[in-house]
């Protein structure tokens, strides 16, 4: 009887400790921002170096399709016609789950994680103030 009670108390204690750990761990949704930063900077540098094919390989599928559709040209050609500021450094990156905003020295780029890695979903974005969405020249729609 007393052995049973001790066993029950031990099980309850383990469940409580596990629950507390799960609750705290579960809330944490942030990760390293090396992937997003690398994709954003790689895209900006590729456009600056007139490497359209490389720039397009770093675009998200929907963004690439939108760019080709709106410009009526293949992506590699269309992307070089956009006014993408020539950035060389990452000032700040914020990541929440599979979404990230990378603030480059001369541009703001939105990046998302896909099965092949981080890809640019919007670039050449202008800040219109805290309450309004960025105005992005390249975006997925």
């Amino acid at each position: 009887m007393f052995a049973d009670r001790g066993y029950c108390e031990a099980v309850i204690m383990r469940v409580c400790v596990g629950l507390a750990g799960l609750l705290l761990l579960g809330g944490c949704g942030h990760g390293a921002t090396a992937g997003p930063s690398s994709a954003a900077l790689g895209f900006a540098r590729a456009v600056t170096a007139h490497q359209g094919g490389r720039a397009c390989s770093l675009l998200a599928p929907a963004t690439r399709a939108q760019l080709e559709s709106s410009q009526g040209k293949p992506c590699a050609e269309a992307v070089l016609g956009q006014s993408v500021p020539s950035s060389n450094a990452v000032r700040r990156a914020d990541q929440y789950g599979t979404e990230s905003r990378v603030m480059l020295d001369k541009d703001v780029v939105f990046v998302a994680r896909f099965s092949l890695g981080w890809r640019v979903v919007a670039a050449a974005c202008k800040d219109r103030g805290q309450k309004l969405p960025y105005d992005c020249q390249i975006s997925g729609g």
Binding site: A20, L23, G29, E99, F110, Y134, C136
Partner: peptide
């Protein structure tokens, strides 16, 4: 308290992810 704190952190991450999907400020 732990579950409300966890809601606030997980909810924050979810909210900011949706903000970024809409090209808005986190």
């Amino acid at each position: 308290v732990l579950s409300w704190l966890s809601q606030s952190i997980a909810g924050w991450s979810t909210y900011d992810a949706s903000q970024l999907r809409a090209y808005e400020h986190p």
